[in-house]
Design a protein around this nucleic acid. Structure first.
Length: 301
DNA sequence: AACTTTCCCAACCGCCCTGGT
DNA sequence: AACCAGGGCGGTTGGGAAAGT
Protein backbone atom coordinates (compact mmCIF):
# COMPACT_ATOMS: atom_id res chain seq x y z
CA UNK A 1 0.00 0.00 0.00
CA UNK A 2 1.44 3.34 -0.98
CA UNK A 3 1.61 6.53 0.95
CA UNK A 4 -1.48 8.66 0.87
CA UNK A 5 -1.15 11.66 -1.43
CA UNK A 6 -0.23 14.95 0.18
CA UNK A 7 -3.28 16.63 -1.33
CA UNK A 8 -6.30 16.00 -3.49
CA UNK A 9 -4.91 15.93 -6.99
CA UNK A 10 -8.28 16.57 -8.66
CA UNK A 11 -8.77 19.96 -7.10
CA UNK A 12 -5.31 21.43 -7.44
CA UNK A 13 -3.71 23.50 -10.15
CA UNK A 14 -0.47 22.32 -11.64
CA UNK A 15 2.18 23.87 -13.79
CA UNK A 16 3.41 27.42 -13.88
CA UNK A 17 2.28 29.79 -11.17
CA UNK A 18 0.30 32.89 -12.07
CA UNK A 19 1.08 36.35 -10.70
CA UNK A 20 -2.12 36.24 -8.72
CA UNK A 21 -1.17 32.95 -7.08
CA UNK A 22 2.27 34.30 -6.25
CA UNK A 23 0.72 37.38 -4.68
CA UNK A 24 -1.70 35.33 -2.60
CA UNK A 25 1.13 33.14 -1.35
CA UNK A 26 3.39 36.08 -0.52
CA UNK A 27 0.60 37.94 1.22
CA UNK A 28 -0.28 34.92 3.31
CA UNK A 29 3.31 34.19 4.36
CA UNK A 30 3.92 37.86 5.11
CA UNK A 31 1.09 37.74 7.63
CA UNK A 32 1.32 34.20 8.99
CA UNK A 33 4.91 33.20 8.35
CA UNK A 34 6.23 29.97 6.88
CA UNK A 35 5.12 26.51 7.93
CA UNK A 36 1.99 24.31 8.01
CA UNK A 37 2.29 23.90 4.29
CA UNK A 38 -0.45 21.32 4.08
CA UNK A 39 -3.08 23.67 5.44
CA UNK A 40 -1.62 26.77 3.81
CA UNK A 41 -3.25 26.47 0.36
CA UNK A 42 -6.75 26.35 1.78
CA UNK A 43 -6.07 29.13 4.25
CA UNK A 44 -4.50 31.28 1.55
CA UNK A 45 -7.22 30.52 -0.98
CA UNK A 46 -4.90 28.69 -3.35
CA UNK A 47 -5.79 25.65 -5.41
CA UNK A 48 -2.32 24.24 -4.99
CA UNK A 49 -0.67 21.37 -3.20
CA UNK A 50 1.08 22.42 0.00
CA UNK A 51 4.35 21.07 -1.24
CA UNK A 52 3.99 23.10 -4.38
CA UNK A 53 3.47 26.24 -2.29
CA UNK A 54 6.55 25.48 -0.25
CA UNK A 55 8.66 24.95 -3.36
CA UNK A 56 7.37 28.10 -4.98
CA UNK A 57 8.18 30.14 -1.89
CA UNK A 58 11.61 28.61 -1.25
CA UNK A 59 12.81 28.57 -4.83
CA UNK A 60 11.29 31.72 -6.24
CA UNK A 61 9.38 34.06 -3.94
CA UNK A 62 11.60 34.28 -0.88
CA UNK A 63 12.78 37.89 -0.57
CA UNK A 64 16.39 37.02 0.24
CA UNK A 65 17.04 35.16 -2.99
CA UNK A 66 19.96 36.29 -5.09
CA UNK A 67 19.06 36.81 -8.72
CA UNK A 68 21.33 36.69 -11.68
CA UNK A 69 24.16 34.57 -12.96
CA UNK A 70 26.53 32.61 -10.79
CA UNK A 71 29.94 34.20 -10.37
CA UNK A 72 33.19 32.35 -11.05
CA UNK A 73 33.80 32.32 -7.31
CA UNK A 74 30.43 30.69 -6.71
CA UNK A 75 31.28 28.14 -9.39
CA UNK A 76 34.46 27.20 -7.59
CA UNK A 77 32.72 26.99 -4.25
CA UNK A 78 30.07 24.70 -5.69
CA UNK A 79 32.72 22.49 -7.26
CA UNK A 80 34.67 22.24 -4.02
CA UNK A 81 31.61 21.55 -1.92
CA UNK A 82 30.33 18.99 -4.42
CA UNK A 83 33.67 17.19 -4.25
CA UNK A 84 33.17 16.91 -0.51
CA UNK A 85 29.44 16.44 -0.17
CA UNK A 86 28.30 14.94 -3.46
CA UNK A 87 24.75 15.70 -4.58
CA UNK A 88 23.77 17.16 -1.23
CA UNK A 89 22.33 20.24 -2.87
CA UNK A 90 20.67 21.60 0.21
CA UNK A 91 23.93 21.46 2.15
CA UNK A 92 25.73 23.16 -0.71
CA UNK A 93 23.00 25.77 -0.93
CA UNK A 94 23.42 26.39 2.78
CA UNK A 95 26.89 27.68 2.01
CA UNK A 96 25.78 30.00 -0.78
CA UNK A 97 23.59 32.76 0.61
CA UNK A 98 20.67 33.60 -1.63
CA UNK A 99 20.97 30.47 -3.74
CA UNK A 100 18.56 27.56 -3.55
CA UNK A 101 19.26 23.87 -3.74
CA UNK A 102 17.14 23.61 -6.88
CA UNK A 103 19.00 26.45 -8.53
CA UNK A 104 22.38 24.96 -7.71
CA UNK A 105 21.28 21.52 -8.85
CA UNK A 106 20.10 22.92 -12.18
CA UNK A 107 23.22 25.00 -12.56
CA UNK A 108 25.39 22.00 -11.82
CA UNK A 109 23.64 19.87 -14.41
CA UNK A 110 23.62 22.51 -17.13
CA UNK A 111 26.90 24.39 -16.65
CA UNK A 112 29.36 23.05 -14.13
CA UNK A 113 29.30 19.46 -15.35
CA UNK A 114 30.31 20.70 -18.78
CA UNK A 115 32.90 23.03 -17.31
CA UNK A 116 34.55 20.20 -15.40
CA UNK A 117 34.50 17.89 -18.38
CA UNK A 118 36.17 20.59 -20.47
CA UNK A 119 38.87 20.74 -17.79
CA UNK A 120 39.26 16.98 -18.09
CA UNK A 121 37.69 16.31 -14.70
CA UNK A 122 35.01 13.73 -14.05
CA UNK A 123 32.09 15.65 -12.48
CA UNK A 124 31.04 12.62 -10.47
CA UNK A 125 34.34 11.68 -8.95
CA UNK A 126 36.25 14.96 -9.33
CA UNK A 127 39.16 12.99 -10.66
CA UNK A 128 40.89 13.29 -14.02
CA UNK A 129 38.72 11.63 -16.65
CA UNK A 130 41.45 9.25 -17.81
CA UNK A 131 42.51 8.13 -14.36
CA UNK A 132 41.35 4.72 -13.19
CA UNK A 133 43.00 4.15 -9.83
CA UNK A 134 40.74 3.41 -6.90
CA UNK A 135 42.74 4.51 -3.90
CA UNK A 136 41.78 7.60 -1.98
CA UNK A 137 43.89 10.42 -3.29
CA UNK A 138 43.88 14.16 -3.24
CA UNK A 139 44.18 16.13 -6.40
CA UNK A 140 45.09 19.75 -6.74
CA UNK A 141 44.24 21.94 -9.65
CA UNK A 142 45.31 25.48 -10.21
CA UNK A 143 43.05 28.20 -11.54
CA UNK A 144 43.69 31.88 -12.01
CA UNK A 145 42.55 32.87 -8.56
CA UNK A 146 42.29 29.75 -6.48
CA UNK A 147 44.03 26.53 -5.82
CA UNK A 148 41.18 24.08 -5.78
CA UNK A 149 41.62 20.91 -3.78
CA UNK A 150 39.52 17.83 -4.37
CA UNK A 151 39.06 14.86 -2.16
CA UNK A 152 37.87 11.54 -3.35
CA UNK A 153 36.23 9.04 -1.05
CA UNK A 154 37.34 5.96 -2.91
CA UNK A 155 35.82 7.24 -6.14
CA UNK A 156 32.51 8.27 -4.65
CA UNK A 157 31.30 11.20 -2.63
CA UNK A 158 30.45 10.52 0.99
CA UNK A 159 27.10 8.79 1.17
CA UNK A 160 26.52 7.57 4.67
CA UNK A 161 25.00 9.84 7.27
CA UNK A 162 28.06 9.29 9.41
CA UNK A 163 30.34 10.50 6.65
CA UNK A 164 28.21 13.54 5.96
CA UNK A 165 27.85 14.27 9.63
CA UNK A 166 31.60 14.12 10.05
CA UNK A 167 32.11 16.44 7.11
CA UNK A 168 29.53 18.88 8.37
CA UNK A 169 31.14 18.88 11.77
CA UNK A 170 34.55 19.54 10.35
CA UNK A 171 33.31 22.25 8.03
CA UNK A 172 31.38 24.01 10.72
CA UNK A 173 34.05 23.62 13.32
CA UNK A 174 36.36 25.41 10.97
CA UNK A 175 33.84 28.13 10.27
CA UNK A 176 33.05 28.63 13.90
CA UNK A 177 36.67 29.09 14.76
CA UNK A 178 37.68 31.25 11.84
CA UNK A 179 34.76 33.62 12.32
CA UNK A 180 33.28 35.21 15.32
CA UNK A 181 30.72 32.75 16.56
CA UNK A 182 27.99 35.36 16.79
CA UNK A 183 28.49 36.23 13.13
CA UNK A 184 27.91 32.67 12.14
CA UNK A 185 24.94 32.14 14.39
CA UNK A 186 23.36 35.25 12.92
CA UNK A 187 22.74 33.24 9.78
CA UNK A 188 19.32 32.43 11.20
CA UNK A 189 19.58 28.74 10.45
CA UNK A 190 16.27 26.99 10.02
CA UNK A 191 17.76 23.84 11.43
CA UNK A 192 20.54 23.51 13.98
CA UNK A 193 22.17 20.48 15.42
CA UNK A 194 24.71 20.49 18.19
CA UNK A 195 27.41 17.93 18.63
CA UNK A 196 30.94 17.98 19.94
CA UNK A 197 34.42 17.07 18.93
CA UNK A 198 34.37 14.46 21.64
CA UNK A 199 31.31 12.87 20.10
CA UNK A 200 32.92 12.78 16.73
CA UNK A 201 36.01 11.21 18.08
CA UNK A 202 34.10 8.68 20.08
CA UNK A 203 31.96 7.55 17.23
CA UNK A 204 34.57 7.46 14.57
CA UNK A 205 37.93 7.47 16.26
CA UNK A 206 40.46 5.07 14.90
CA UNK A 207 43.23 5.63 17.44
CA UNK A 208 45.06 2.42 17.78
CA UNK A 209 47.40 3.05 20.67
CA UNK A 210 47.25 4.66 24.07
CA UNK A 211 49.99 7.02 23.01
CA UNK A 212 47.93 8.28 20.09
CA UNK A 213 44.90 8.67 22.32
CA UNK A 214 46.97 10.68 24.74
CA UNK A 215 48.23 12.85 21.90
CA UNK A 216 44.68 13.39 20.79
CA UNK A 217 43.62 14.32 24.29
CA UNK A 218 46.51 16.77 24.49
CA UNK A 219 45.44 18.32 21.19
CA UNK A 220 41.93 18.75 22.48
CA UNK A 221 43.15 20.27 25.70
CA UNK A 222 45.45 22.64 23.83
CA UNK A 223 42.47 23.82 21.78
CA UNK A 224 40.59 24.45 24.99
CA UNK A 225 43.57 26.39 26.26
CA UNK A 226 43.24 28.60 23.23
CA UNK A 227 39.65 29.33 24.21
CA UNK A 228 38.33 27.45 21.24
CA UNK A 229 34.63 26.75 21.24
CA UNK A 230 34.39 22.98 21.13
CA UNK A 231 30.67 22.92 20.50
CA UNK A 232 29.95 22.40 16.86
CA UNK A 233 26.86 24.30 15.92
CA UNK A 234 25.89 22.95 12.55
CA UNK A 235 23.85 25.61 10.83
CA UNK A 236 22.44 24.63 7.50
CA UNK A 237 21.62 28.29 7.09
CA UNK A 238 19.04 28.03 4.38
CA UNK A 239 18.20 31.68 4.64
CA UNK A 240 21.59 33.27 4.99
CA UNK A 241 21.67 36.92 4.05
CA UNK A 242 24.81 38.41 5.56
CA UNK A 243 27.36 39.17 2.90
CA UNK A 244 30.02 39.42 5.58
CA UNK A 245 29.50 35.74 6.24
CA UNK A 246 29.35 34.64 2.66
CA UNK A 247 30.77 31.26 1.79
CA UNK A 248 33.16 33.06 -0.51
CA UNK A 249 34.69 35.10 2.25
CA UNK A 250 34.86 32.07 4.51
CA UNK A 251 36.84 30.24 1.91
CA UNK A 252 39.50 32.91 1.96
CA UNK A 253 40.66 32.03 5.45
CA UNK A 254 44.32 31.27 6.02
CA UNK A 255 45.93 27.92 6.67
CA UNK A 256 45.67 26.63 10.21
CA UNK A 257 45.97 23.34 12.03
CA UNK A 258 43.56 20.42 11.91
CA UNK A 259 40.93 21.09 14.54
CA UNK A 260 40.55 17.44 15.36
CA UNK A 261 44.09 16.19 15.43
CA UNK A 262 46.39 19.17 15.01
CA UNK A 263 47.56 18.36 11.50
CA UNK A 264 47.95 21.15 8.98
CA UNK A 265 44.60 22.21 7.55
CA UNK A 266 44.23 24.49 4.57
CA UNK A 267 40.80 25.80 3.68
CA UNK A 268 37.44 25.46 5.40
CA UNK A 269 36.05 23.22 2.70
CA UNK A 270 38.90 20.78 3.05
CA UNK A 271 39.03 18.03 5.58
CA UNK A 272 42.33 17.65 7.31
CA UNK A 273 45.20 18.18 4.97
CA UNK A 274 48.84 17.62 5.64
CA UNK A 275 51.18 19.59 3.42
CA UNK A 276 53.99 17.55 2.03
CA UNK A 277 55.86 19.74 -0.41
CA UNK A 278 53.56 20.26 -3.37
CA UNK A 279 51.59 17.15 -2.54
CA UNK A 280 48.65 17.23 -0.16
CA UNK A 281 47.13 14.31 1.60
CA UNK A 282 44.89 13.48 4.49
CA UNK A 283 46.58 13.58 7.84
CA UNK A 284 47.11 10.10 9.23
CA UNK A 285 44.36 10.34 11.79
CA UNK A 286 41.79 11.52 9.33
CA UNK A 287 42.82 8.83 6.89
CA UNK A 288 42.17 6.36 9.66
CA UNK A 289 38.85 7.99 10.32
CA UNK A 290 37.82 7.70 6.70
CA UNK A 291 38.91 4.08 6.56
CA UNK A 292 36.97 3.45 9.72
CA UNK A 293 33.90 5.11 8.30
CA UNK A 294 33.99 3.16 5.06
CA UNK A 295 34.67 -0.15 6.77
CA UNK A 296 31.77 0.51 9.11
CA UNK A 297 29.43 1.29 6.23
CA UNK A 298 30.64 -1.73 4.30
CA UNK A 299 30.11 -3.88 7.35
CA UNK A 300 26.58 -2.65 7.83
CA UNK A 301 25.62 -3.53 4.22
C1' DA B 1 10.13 32.55 -42.46
C1' DA B 2 9.39 27.93 -40.99
C1' DC B 3 10.76 24.05 -38.87
C1' DT B 4 13.79 21.23 -35.83
C1' DT B 5 16.90 20.60 -32.21
C1' DT B 6 19.03 21.85 -28.02
C1' DC B 7 19.16 24.22 -23.77
C1' DC B 8 17.45 25.65 -19.50
C1' DC B 9 14.92 25.85 -15.33
C1' DA B 10 10.52 25.83 -12.71
C1' DA B 11 7.82 22.46 -11.01
C1' DC B 12 6.56 17.83 -9.90
C1' DC B 13 7.13 13.15 -7.90
C1' DG B 14 8.19 9.89 -4.67
C1' DC B 15 11.05 8.56 -1.04
C1' DC B 16 13.28 9.60 3.41
C1' DC B 17 13.68 11.63 7.99
C1' DT B 18 11.90 13.33 12.19
C1' DG B 19 8.86 14.16 15.85
C1' DG B 20 4.57 13.17 18.03
C1' DT B 21 1.34 9.81 19.76
C1' DA C 1 7.77 -0.62 18.68
C1' DA C 2 4.64 0.85 15.32
C1' DC C 3 2.21 4.13 13.01
C1' DC C 4 1.23 8.63 11.08
C1' DA C 5 1.70 13.41 9.44
C1' DG C 6 4.48 17.01 8.01
C1' DG C 7 8.44 18.70 6.05
C1' DG C 8 12.55 18.17 3.32
C1' DC C 9 15.39 16.35 -0.28
C1' DG C 10 17.24 14.61 -4.76
C1' DG C 11 16.04 12.98 -9.28
C1' DT C 12 13.35 13.76 -13.19
C1' DT C 13 10.31 16.00 -16.48
C1' DG C 14 7.60 19.39 -19.31
C1' DG C 15 7.49 23.16 -21.85
C1' DG C 16 9.12 27.67 -23.22
C1' DA C 17 13.18 30.07 -25.14
C1' DA C 18 17.12 30.18 -27.88
C1' DA C 19 20.00 28.45 -31.42
C1' DG C 20 20.68 26.02 -35.58
C1' DT C 21 19.39 24.50 -40.29
Amino acid sequence: MGRSPCCEKEHTNKGAWTKEEDQRLMDYIRVHGEGCWRSLPKAAGLLRCGKSCRLRWINYLRPDLKRGNFTDEEDEIIIKLHSLLGNKWSLIAGRLPGRTDNEIKNYWNTHIKRKLISRGIDPHTHRPLNERTTTATIKTTTSATTKATQLDFKNTPPQSLAEISLLKSQLDFKYNNNFHSSQYSSFNPKKTETTSVEENNCTSSSMTTDEEQQQQQQKRESHQDQDVNLDLTIGLALTQTSSANSAESRLQQPVSSCQLFGSVLTRPVCLCWQLDGERRELCRNCQNQNQNQSSKSNHSK
